[in-house]
Amino acid sequence: MQISPRRPSSLLRRRLRQYRAIYLMILPVLVYFLIFSFYPLILGLVQSLQKERLLGTPQFIGLANYQSLLRDRNFLQALWNSLYIGSFSLVINIFTGMVLAVSLNELRSRAVKATVQTVTFLPYLFSWTVVGGVWVYVLSHNGLVNGMLDALGLDRISFFTVPAWGRPVMLFTNAWKQSGYFAVLLLASLVGIDPEVYEAAHIDGASRLQQIGRISLPMMLPTVKTLLLLGATGVLRNFDQVLIMSRPAIKDKVGSVLLFIYEQGILKMKIGLATSAAAVVLAATFLIALAVRRASRYEGSLYD
């Protein structure tokens, strides 16, 4: 078969024309992002290069904000805390969501399924102000959990005054609040599975558990990967939870970078510090997302 040589640019141009209608379909979204995401981003980056001056013309100081930031021990600690807690949170939350989705999918009774799903999803609807407050009390010295420990004859645990407990508490309460949300999204990829597929496996001798492993789990995998990638963009973004639940004794371990920005930047009207720290967060998030993307691609799936 003869392949007539073509200049690459005209091939591209042909393909662009071929997909004209498709590009139109995504155009509104791109315009929106240009105006509401990228333009403010540029403005914000410019502010990070200035010495804050809310009224009047600000002074350009180049990378000075960044330099002092990267030398600040507290900022670096906060960045590390966010990375640690955020990454583990994401993985734990998705995992718990998967367990929940599979469990719900196995329920026969629609009424029970609906009720349980509603209840497990509800913590997501409440703000951290409410949820965090309840957990601080439940985990307090005379609270429910310590009451149970007492009844079992064990020592009481001071969850908020012993530094070692700080991170586990955050991870646990975060999973508790978010897993219902992930379960909803994961369940959506399970309910579309034709029951015949399960039946066929059953006839081939697979137990239900094996069917879950061979059918349900793989069907969720693409969504899991998408959620991992999307979640990666939010790894450093813990704010509300830490604001409500942090206590001085554990702050060194759980203080997040957004909390740092709020306390050192916003509350002190220092917009230069706030924007430069936020830019560092942006860069770090970008690297994390790239890493996640590469890692999950490595699994050899068709996913982009």
Binding site: V136, Y137, S140, H141, N142, S158, F160, T161, R247, A249
Partner: peptide, 11 residues
């Protein structure tokens, strides 16, 4: 009160 170590002024 042990909650002095963790509670807020509201509590």
């Amino acid at each position: 009160d042990p909650d002095s170590l963790t509670g807020s002024s509201g509590d």
